[in-house]
Design a protein around this nucleic acid. Structure first.
Lengths: 343, 343
DNA sequence: TTGTATGCGTTATCAG
DNA sequence: CTGATAACGCATACAA
């Protein structure tokens, strides 16, 4: 049933070591024996055992993707598939496989450090920054174990992320180009780094255009349709109200849209709406939303590449990779076409 | 740096085999030596090498999830994360890990049979029916290699799936209960098994309610918002038009909704809309859609359980598992509340 | 109850 | 160029 290297050696009338060398295409084996051995391997339908190879080589040819499935991460939930695809596309040609591991089983010995790292199941790790705590990344640093964080981390280490600041800039600049000038920002919590970056981009775009907005137009709230609906309802009834808004994500935009509808405010002529995160609603609202698309496949690719670099040469310095988002203009900010009533 | 079983043996002043037995909690080791050895393992921070264990035990404690990332499967794209979570929740306690593998690299030796099965990287496989062709499942059957298909397959083998027929039934029955009787069905292609099942449920519900509908009310088209929009536009302008429609998914429903809006047909009073597939739009349309939710986490759980059964006892007969969907009633079919103008 | 010897399927280090 | 032989880290039959 199962054919090993010894079987091949016997059948080919050579030593196991010779077969091994043929397997690895060693330059010091004659072409004819290579031919002969390969012939027999094909005939006998031989495939080397990855486990035995791993033991001998002291490498699993396996990389681990860590996730915390208990956390219901909207981001991972949406883009997991793409990220995996990206990682896979770079590691597969290098003969590596991808192991997904859930971190939530934090029983003492169920910890991923045991399950994957110490047990040598994987040669490197990719994880998003919510699971890669400062503590963990420092431990991995000490072990000199290769890892990449998806999302910026503050400890010294390699990571990949989207350029949220550039994104905030793009969205805001786009609004300005469309003739909006009284631009609000809705959604997100101040502690979240992603919020800080996005807001930072918004602010710098305003500054560059010499625009100032009241502090009260920057509204922190849970970035879902419910809270943003109420926030927008309040904002849009103030004495001085914005003529446009940058939204933390498409759910927020959805809430703002509902609020505008409830107040009889027309989008985009009276209110422009631009949002981070194309997914999942932007195309399907009325009107469709101008939003920022991110290429999550590329995110996987980058993290895979960086990780493989670290696995190959351990001495490489830590690297970061910032990916540019892409603006998708849609009706919700197309003021030009509907600006008959513009002040 | 790396501590092996020999180091522990030396430090504890026992034989390697004793340490091994402690590791596996063998009943024929005295409590005191167990204590002592464990103590030392903890002190020296020892974790057994999964590769060495695998080689000795002839098992990888690893299961493979096969996907074809080239196919842009809407289903997997949406639910990959949940399915993985489900699988993980059953295999992790059994000390198994999950390896994701992309099938599209169909270079001769990059085939997953080599990469995973023959190379003994995994002890079993889960794959959806689009990658598990008849040919492949038959080959796996011959090899007696454990596998589970996500989605029904016709070759003898184990699979898990949602009960699409029951789903069609539930949606249709719900419409009937709401007082609708002229029920159309939009979206899907006749060759797709999933369509056949969903339509079958719809038809049987009609039959049970002694309702008949014109053959032309069953409309095949690509199940997206564009094609279904045009299909609905045409359907709703016919001499005799339906008072409700069952949609293949939420995109189709979105298209139908647009068409109704364009024609000034009120939903739900003049047209009821019920749809398969909660995700991703159902909650966010106006009005929100009555739809069918599926628990994809459970799908993962089921497939994991079935696979582990097969890995444990190879002689187990093939099993199938049909999961029930859940109806989520929303405004799009709430005729009762809006039925002032009902005929 | 514990220790010894051998095997799991490769790779790698030497001789030849 | 090719062939013994010793790792790799753990499990297991058998002996003590």
């Amino acid at each position: 049933m199962k054919v090993t290297i010894s079987d091949i050696a016997k059948a080919a009338n050579v030593a196991k070591s010779t077969v091994s060398k043929v397997l690895n295409d060693s330059p010091k084996i004659s072409q004819e024996t290579k031919q002969k051995v390969r012939e027999i391997m094909k005939q006998m339908n031989y495939t080397p055992s990855s486990i035995a190879t791993g033991l001998a080589r002291q490498s699993s040819c396996n990389i681990g993707l860590l996730v915390d499935m208990s956390k219901e991460s909207e981001f991972l939930n949406q883009f997991f598939y793409n990220i995996i695809g990206g990682i896979e596309s770079v590691i597969a040609p290098l003969k590596y496989e991808l192991t997904i591991s859930n971190v939530q089983h934090s029983s003492p010995e169920g910890h991923f450090l045991n399950r994957l790292v110490f047990s040598k199941r994987v040669d490197g790790i990719i994880a998003n920054n919510s699971v890669l705590t400062e503590e963990l990344s420092e431990e991995l640093n000490q072990l000199e174990f290769p890892y990449i964080s998806i999302g910026e981390i503050m400890t010294p280490g390699s990571w990949v992320d989207f350029d949220n600041e550039a994104g905030g800039n793009m969205l805001t600049e786009h609004l300005i180009e469309q003739g909006y000038s009284k631009i609000a920002f809705i959604g997100g919590q101040q502690q979240e780094k992603i919020y800080t970056h996005r807001l930072g981009g918004y602010l710098s775009a305003l500054q560059q255009a010499d625009l100032t907005v009241p502090q009260q137009w920057i509204i922190n709230c849970k970035a879902d349709e419910h809270d943003s609906y109420h926030a927008a309802l309040e904002l849009l009834q103030r004495e001085e109200r914005p003529d446009s808004v940058v939204c933390m994500n498409s759910y927020v935009a959805f809430g703002v849209l509902q609020a505008a509808k409830a107040l009889g405010i027309d989008v985009p002529s009276e209110l422009g709406i631009a949002a981070f995160d194309e997914y999942p609603l932007s195309r399907y609202t009325t009107p469709p939303l101008t939003s920022l698309n991110i290429d999550t496949f590329k995110l996987g690719v980058s993290s895979g590449q960086l990780l493989m670099e670290r696995i190959r040469g351990n001495d490489a310095p830590h690297k970061h990779s910032l990916l540019e988002p892409e603006l998708i203009p849609r009706e919700s900010t197309m003021r030009a076409k509907f600006s008959g009533t513009t002040s």
